[in-house]
Design a protein around this nucleic acid. Structure first.
Lengths: 235, 235
DNA sequence: GAGGCATTTGAGTGATCGATCAAATTATCT
DNA sequence: AGATAATTTGATCGATCACTCAAATGCCTC
């Protein structure tokens, strides 16, 4: 059973503020968090500096004192996401369950919660930026890639932890990329359709894939309780 | 063996122009095709009307004679994509192979070609718009969704054609959404990483899933030639 | 409390945004 | 040819864009 209900994706961001020893102003953090929220809600290009200034209650000079340009602000946002990945995204799932494979699906359920709360309007902030500004400047693309690679590496650790529940020749590196692929693609489709049906369908297919993999693993076909009839070995 | 090499995703667009009885000007088409290309290359928000005007060699008044606003132009682009889906995207794969499941992977190989040609800088134009402008206005979201639903429906037809090569209780509707999910997510990751590795990894995992499904199908484990060791029933 | 540095103020920069419109031109039809 | 409609021209609109900067204010140390 779950140990601890993880915070929703949309409320989890605030929790990362008080981590550092409160370095003076707070203005810089307010700018960063406002930019993070607006970039997520509206996208990077659609978010004007003036909107950030208004919502963060900051003057233009202050923003440009801390961040030399809008792009530098984006870099700051992406660096923050790198910092937040483990404590906000991965660790809550590790708290939620000890089962390494269930952690994968707990993570997918966490993103589902983000979709549900926003009525399928806001997707993965990194994925959004990957598509909108992914190839504008090299260091930005690399920061987005870093977020993705860390995400996949975290999932990959879980897959490694699953041991012989997966077939020994399973390409766990590829499988971890695949899981990120499924999450991002499913979120995109949920936003386009305006409901969670395609998201749930994709997660269900991924679950079916894992069931088949576990059935094929040396651990045996009986390791999991509810394996659908179609995953039985030949009758 | 393949019957006919399908045109690449990046050159296929031009072929759809001469379909109609050449209705006068050509200006409208030139505007639409230029907008289609620029939205794909740069995104919707990052593309200025002035750029479209310059590259299409058209004056502002002409554009606004045909399209009342930038958003109306986007609607025109999305409608064009709806028209192009079957002749440009789906039918070439049906020409390429008769095997319904191989058509799925031929389609994925087609998108891979688009990534390869552009050096992993341009993704799926619909997916890009889904994320960037997906929830700006309802009719736009619906047009994007229409593109996705038609895409999935086409794939779903192939899955139906596969008959008993898939387990009878397979949720083919969900599986067709899943395939779109994998394509879009894999394209996103390829753009972020700047190479095709995560794309190929995701497609390989999807292939592995299909192998497992086919093995579990009543048609039997021996229907396909090269099934990896891990897909064997219990040893 | 004086000096020095970080931060904040907020008016203002030129550039570009999407969009407008009257006039000129071209095409279509009688 | 003449009338009517469709299309094209291109200057121009106000709004907003990302951004600058000199001056004012706060904060810390000595």
């Amino acid at each position: 059973m779950p140990k601890d209900p993880p915070a929703s994706p949309e409320t989890a961001l605030e929790g990362a503020s008080a981590a550092e020893p409160a370095p003076a102003s707070g203005t810089k953090d307010r700018i960063l968090e406002t930019a993070m929220r607006l970039f997520h809600e509206q996208g990077y290009n659609a978010t004007g500096i003036s909107t950030i200034l208004r919502e963060a209650k900051v003057n233009a000079g202050s923003l440009y004192h801390f961040y030399g340009s809008k792009e530098a602000l984006l870099v700051g946002v992406l660096q923050r996401y790198v910092e937040m990945l483990r404590p906000i995204v991965l660790e809550p799932q590790e708290q939620a369950t000890d089962d390494p494979i269930e952690r994968v699906f707990a993570l997918l359920a966490w993103y589902r919660m983000g979709l549900e709360i926003t009525g399928c309007t806001m997707g993965c902030p990194i994925g959004n930026l990957a598509i909108e500004v992914g190839d504008s400047h090299p260091n930005i693309r690399e920061l987005i890639d870093l977020n993705f690679r860390n995400w996949s590496r975290g999932v990959r650790q879980w897959l490694d932890d699953a041991g012989d529940r997966l077939p020994p020749d399973t390409d766990r590196e590829a499988l971890s990329h695949f899981i990120l692929t499924v999450m991002e693609g499913a979120v995109m489709q949920a936003r386009a359709s305006g409901d969670l049906v395609p998201y749930d369908a994709s997660v269900a297919q991924l679950r079916s894939y894992f069931d088949l993999l576990e059935t094929a693993a040396p651990g045996g076909a009986r390791s999991r309780a509810k394996v659908s009839a179609r995953t039985e070995p030949l009758q």
